[in-house]
Amino acid sequence: MNATTVIQLYVFVLAAFVGYQVISRVPSLLHTPLMSATNAISGISLVGSLVAAGSGSSRISNILGCIAVTCAMINVVGGFVITDRMLKMFKRGSKAGDPSTTLGTGPK
């Protein structure tokens, strides 16, 4: 096992730990948006896909990469759009005297 792999493992374990901590604070109210958000973020495979699609090594790379870019992009675009669409719906009932009301105060 070389030094790079060790560092990668550090990154992985710490990120998983941070993820666990951050996500355990998400209320069950927002679990569906959470799933679609992580789904959008999993479109990060786009990074690997783009390199393959744009590489000069072989035609196979380009084609596999092109399909992968399409799939990952569907995830990214669809995921973020849908998450925003859902989050937009979560409104606080306009209660008088509640200063923290930031959403849902528009005209009825």
Partner: peptide
């Protein structure tokens, strides 16, 4: 990235993905 030398496949993938992803979303 310096490894990216050809663009058509990237553009096709990004455009296709967006075309499918937006209505899905």
């Amino acid at each position: 990235n310096a490894g990216i030398v050809t663009w058509p496949y990237i553009v096709v993938g990004l455009v296709l993905g967006t075309i499918i992803g937006v209505p899905l979303g």
